[in-house]
């Protein structure tokens, strides 16, 4: 039996127009929102199929919007998008995962927003990368559940830098290319990684990098997340790692990551809760 041949329908408008679907569907993570006009918002999505794109969500600032609850930042949702003149328009959306654990806790939320901002700053529109999509997704899950909220972020920073071609040098001194000795070395974001003691003499503004700090950075770079999660990291070491990674990220981006400030604010407020005296009743 010969297959039934259906003649392809020609576009009746303009035959020169390339044929492209007017609507398309993709899972996406909402990175951020900004207001547009009276009731609309522009969403920055990281889609699994198109990479980072800005889309318009119409009417989402009205109480009765069917879209509003599904397009909050840090939501994974399936989007049905219609090709628009400049920006594509959200026609339907359904939440896949809303990371409630991240939303309900200020510490986790600050980390989640930082991760979303990093992906936004590091990527260009329409450059799809499923591994990066997957990386943010996994990180948000780890931040939502784990007892340690900072280690997933460190792992994410390192994986992101590595994936984008900014892997820091951790095996040899970036200046003299000799293998790093297991002593206190130095960290220079500008030079692109670790600097040995001798080379540091001439260079300026390199911060010290402890032996354990270097080991952990190597583990972040080469290990799986489960390996890193098994290590218990003391607060001073966690601080050292955070400062080193932030400095590196800042150097690569050539700007501050705004959400980093919020992590600090939230952290400052934490011990205050335990120390503050009870108000007279």
């Amino acid at each position: 039996m010969s297959p039934l041949r259906i003649p392809r329908r020609r576009s009746c408008y303009d035959p020169r127009m390339p044929e492209r679907p007017r609507v398309y569907k993709s899972p996406a993570l909402v990175l951020r929102q900004r207001k547009l006009g009276d009731a609309d918002k522009i969403l920055t999505l990281y889609t699994a199929s198109e990479g980072k794109i800005d889309v318009v969500a119409k009417g989402v600032r009205k109480t009765k919007s069917r879209l509003a609850g599904h397009v909050e930042p840090l939501t994974q949702a399936t989007f049905l998008l219609a090709k628009g003149k400049s920006l594509d328009i959200v026609t339907q959306v359904e939440t896949i995962e809303s990371f409630q654990g991240v939303r309900d806790d200020l510490d986790r939320l600050s980390r989640g927003l930082y991760c979303a901002e990093l992906l936004d700053r590091f990527t260009e529109p329409h450059e799809p990368s499923f591994p990066l999509y997957r990386l943010l997704l996994d990180t948000l899950r780890r931040v939502a559940r784990g007892s340690d909220v900072d280690t997933p972020v460190r792992f994410y920073e390192m994986a992101l830098l590595h994936a984008l071609g900014y892997r820091p040098e951790l095996d040899v001194c970036v200046a003299c290319r000799r293998a790093l000795e297991p002593l206190t070395n130095y960290w220079s974001a500008a030079a692109g990684g670790a600097v040995c003691r001798q080379c540091r003499m001439g260079a300026d503004a390199a911060r010290s990098l402890s032996v354990n700090g270097l080991k952990l950075l190597r583990l972040l770079l080469h290990g799986r997340f489960d390996d890193v999660a098994r290590v218990s990291i003391a607060p001073p070491l966690a601080d050292e790692l955070e400062r080193a990674m932030r400095e590196y990220v800042r150097w690569v981006l050539e700007r501050d990551v705004r959400s980093a400030g919020f992590i600090d604010t939230v952290r400052q407020r934490r011990p205050a809760r335990a120390r503050a005296p009870q108000a007279p009743t």
Binding site: P73, R103, D105, L106, L109, R269, R273, P277, Q278, A279
Partner: peptide, 21 residues
């Protein structure tokens, strides 16, 4: 009731709870 509003409310609640309010 959106992400920013919730963050603000959680933050302020963290500040005020120690005051016994």
């Amino acid at each position: 009731p959106n992400l920013e509003g919730e963050a603000t409310s959680m933050y302020i609640s963290r500040l005020l709870t120690p005051l016994g309010v």
